[in-house]
């Protein structure tokens, strides 16, 4: 897992497939490492299944951390229900 973190040091984004290729392993192994790193607080999900756009419906009821609390204005303006299929992103947490 140190290798994975070292790879990210060059500042380039990588997909799971690229990480698997660069680490000489499989995507499921990469996924397991990501699970673990997330669990021990080395990386965090930036935007997951609920990107702000999609979770705006949630934000209006106050559940999305990325959206304004009093987000009444976003209704009818943001693509509500959009951005559902954007995959997930993780970033390194500065230690």
């Amino acid at each position: 897992m140190n290798a994975l973190i070292a790879l990210l040091g060059d500042g380039h984004a990588r997909t799971l497939w690229m990480l698997a290729r660069d680490l000489g392993t499989t995507e499921s192994d990469v996924k397991r490492q990501i699970d673990y790193l997330e669990h021990i607080g080395m990386i965090r999900k930036v935007i997951g299944d609920g990107v702000c756009g999609s979770s705006c419906s949630g934000s209006c009821s106050g559940s999305c951390s990325g959206c304004p609390s009093g987000g009444s204005a976003c209704k009818g303006c943001l693509p509500e229900g959009g951005f559902q299929n954007m995959g997930q992103m993780w970033e390194l947490i500065p230690q």
Binding site: D10, T15, L19, K31, E91
Partner: peptide, 11 residues
């Protein structure tokens, strides 16, 4: 500043 790459899981 130092920039770390993101990990992306593409659907």
């Amino acid at each position: 500043e130092d920039r770390f790459g993101m990990i992306m899981e593409l659907p």
